[in-house]
Write a protein that binds this DNA or RNA. Structure first.
Ligand SMILES: [Zn+2]
Ligand SMILES: [Zn+2]
Ligand SMILES: [Zn+2]
Ligand SMILES: [Zn+2]
Lengths: 144, 144
DNA sequence: TCGTAAATGAGAATCAGTCGCTATACTAGT
DNA sequence: ACTAGTATAGCGACTGATTCTCATTTACGA
């Protein structure tokens, strides 16, 4: 049996649902919301409860295998399997979710310095850029 | 009548509710959520609907008289009347909301460069640092 | 194959934020 | 100063996202 189902670094037990959600997430190249992911699963015929999608994303987030960020427009959480394993930031299209990653070591160092100077601990830095990607700028290619 | 109620740079008509919300916001020195602000108003006996608080904050935000940011922990929006009028960033305590401001001119330039290189337009940059302030680190002073 | 802990599904609950209709502040007469 | 007209403001009800509860199902080691 060559049926080795695509196995990602999924936390806990391996279930049909987890595999399906991971596959769906992996098939997208940009950031997506839990709801969008759920829709895609429905389209494929993969029956997974929305709550399960949320739980899966949460656990993978804690495991560090997916990135997430908040859409500043509506506060909705978006998720993605990122290429880079080390700390990085995102340039995200607020229309279609497409994203590119970039690193700015100096910024992280600088932010940490500011925090230390003020005596803050457990600091977390948010640094992402939102905009409209080239494709979404030309109405013809618009994918929303 | 010396009763000249404290008049802030409030947009539009002057109403009891707007004055109350502004006063409540001004009396806090850190970032607060709309809900927290609403609670404080209740405590003072100022009767203002939560929806009105949201709308007020929204309009002041557009007018540029208040700053806002998303708490990365729960996605809740936080508001504050900031000292600096020019573009700046924040070091915020995720416990009590206390914040200090800092400026990093290079970062905006850098972000814009990244965006332009990828052909993105209408870019918006989020750059803030969250952590635990010195006061909230010592359990005795904890104010949450 | 069994036993057990973990995971799922369905729906209720929660929580931030928004909407549509009503009340009111302000303005242009009178 | 008083009044009607009108755009703005206020507020209860609603929406949409995310989490919780718990009965049921399932993975998987013994
Ligand atoms: Zn990433
Ligand atoms: Zn796009
Ligand atoms: Zn500020
Ligand atoms: Zn604090």
């Amino acid at each position: 049996m060559p049926q080795d189902p695509p196995f990602p670094p999924v936390e806990g037990r391996s279930t049909r649902q987890k595999r399906a959600v991971w596959a769906a997430l992996a098939s997208v190249d940009g950031f997506v919301s839990a709801k969008t992911l759920h829709h895609r699963l429905e389209e494929r015929g993969d029956d997974v409860a929305l709550a399960t999608v949320y739980r899966f994303l949460q656990s993978q987030l804690e495991a560090g295998t997916v990135d997430s960020l908040l859409n500043p427009d509506d506060g909705e959480a978006l998720y993605r399997i990122c290429a880079a394993q080390t700390h990085h930031h995102h340039l995200v299209c607020r229309e279609c979710g497409i994203a590119t990653e970039f690193k700015v070591p100096e910024i992280d160092r600088l932010a940490r310095t500011v925090a230390v100077n003020e005596g803050f601990s457990e600091t977390v830095l948010t640094f992402d850029v939102f905009g409209i990607c080239p494709a979404c700028q030309s109405p013809s290619n618009h994918v929303d």
